[in-house]
Amino acid sequence: MSYEPTIVAFLCNWCSYTGADLAGTSRMKYASNVRIIRVMCSGRVDPTFVLSAFKEGADGVLICGCHPGDCHYHEGNYKCLRRYHLLQKYFQQMGLDKDRLRLEWISASEGRQFAELVDSYTETVKNLGPCKMKQVIETLT
C-alpha cells in the first residue's frame, strides 16, 4: 500500500467550513487524508495548534479562512496570515519543509475549490513523505 499522509485542517466556521460543507452537499469527491477541525475564525489558530498537530503525527497542516476582506470578524484572517509567515520561518529553523503548512482562502461558495485544494495538497504532502517529527520527539523523550 502506498504511503497515505494525514493532514490536519483548521477551517474557519463562516467561510471555509461552510465551503467544505458545500463540497459535501454537492458530493464532490476528494482525498480522505484530511481531518477537519472547526474554529470560529482562522485568527483563532494558535501556532501551538499547528505544532501540536505535527507533534501528534500529522504530515501536513492546512489552514483555511475567508478571503482577504471577507473575514466575519473583519481581520482575523490577516492575523492568521501573519502567523503563517512566522510559522514558515520557524519551520525552516526546525528543518521542516515549509510545504507542510499551507494557508488558503476558501469562501462559503467555493466547495469545488476546497475539494481541489485537498486533492492537490494531499499530493504535495505525499511527495514530501512522512513527517518524522513525532518519532523524533518520542525518541528524544
Binding site: V39, C41, G43, R44, V45, D46, F49, A58, H72
Partner: peptide, 28 residues
C-alpha cells in the same frame, strides 16, 4: 472570534468553547 486567545502570550485568555485544551485534545 478567538483571535485574542491565540495572541495571548501567557494563555490568560480563554475562548469559551474553543479553549486551547479543547482544540489540542481534539488534535490529539
Amino acid at each position: 472570534c478567538g483571535t485574542c486567545g491565540s495572541t495571548c502570550p501567557t494563555g490568560a485568555i480563554r475562548s469559551r468553547h474553543f479553549t486551547d485544551k479543547q482544540i489540542l485534545s481534539q488534535i490529539e
